[in-house]
């Protein structure tokens, strides 16, 4: 039993305002607040926060979107300038270095990624695929990412797709701890499109582009998702929302490799 004179926490006032307390506890708090200035103040501040959360600037509600929406519907689609940086920006020597670094040291750096990324409940298909991320800096050969990167780090990738039945399609994307998805492959810069996986071949290859996002600091889980059929960005983003960041995606028959990285300021 609660004591009738117990103070309420902010948590409890929030539950009170949300109607999540029992009637008896709510009545108890109301009585208590009549004689406890601290609790009455906490309740009023919590109520003010809720009021602010419901509040909207009046001029926003005067916005008329109709003309703008209809104009855009009737106009041909316009693609925003991509943030994607295409292959010519990656020097050939760097591309060669990616391939070299990828094929030769797979048993070291890449295996280290694997050890951190796959769960003991092994998915057989995962054994045949792999993803390596490289930091790309002007004038320097690409360096394998060893777990940490800067928010504006340009990245390039290499993949491994071997085994008795190699996959046909690949997606590479990062998922922040907040659940935001950052696409590397396919390129996704236009919200009105829904691009599909890129085709891949059997073997070990580097991917041609370097890509820069403005990444949030904190954990970043970079997925290499290998599938037999192409998948679309929206379908995969829906699946990402159904899991905790870094967990295996529920895609049947797919091969997956997740790099668990940490984004921190330079």
């Amino acid at each position: 039993m609660r004591k009738p004179d117990v103070h309420a926490s902010r948590d409890e006032w929030e539950r009170y305002l949300e109607g999540e307390l029992t009637q008896s506890r709510a009545a108890e708090l109301e009585r208590h607040a009549l004689t406890c200035e601290a609790c009455a103040a906490a309740r009023d501040e919590t109520r003010a926060l809720f009021d602010d959360l419901f509040d909207v600037p009046p001029r926003l509600l005067e916005t008329d979107l109709v003309a703008g929406v209809l104009a855009r519907i009737e106009a041909p689609p316009v693609r925003r300038a991509p943030r994607w940086i295409f292959a010519p920006l990656v020097p050939l020597a760097a591309a060669a270095a990616i391939a070299f670094a990828f094929v030769i040291p797979w048993g070291d750096a890449a295996e280290e990624f694997r050890a951190k990324s796959t769960s003991p409940a092994a998915h057989a298909a995962d054994d045949w695929v792999g993803l390596t991320a490289f930091a790309v800096e002007p004038g320097r050969p690409p360096q394998p990412i060893d777990g940490a990167l800067a928010p504006d780090q340009a990245l390039a990738f290499a993949y491994r797709n071997i085994g008795p039945r190699p996959f046909d399609h690949l997606m590479v994307f990062g998922v922040s701890e907040g659940g935001e998805v950052y696409w590397y492959y396919p390129a996704y810069d236009d919200a009105s499109t829904d691009p599909a996986s890129v085709p891949v071949r059997a073997g070990a290859f580097d991917l041609p582009d370097r890509v820069t996002h403005a990444l949030p600091t904190g954990p970043l889980h970079v997925y290499g998702l290998f599938t037999r059929e192409p998948r679309t960005v929206r379908a995969i983003e829906a699946l990402v929302r159904s899991i905790e960041p870094g967990e295996r995606l529920p895609v049947e028959g797919a091969g997956q490799h997740v790099l668990h990285l940490e984004v921190s300021a330079r």
Binding site: L53, V56, P57, L60, L61, L65, V66, L70, I73
Partner: peptide
Amino acid sequence: AFEALVRRHQTSTLRLCYR
């Protein structure tokens, strides 16, 4: 028809996006 939908839902959409 679509214009009527836009008129009907623009305020609620603005509110949600603002929050």
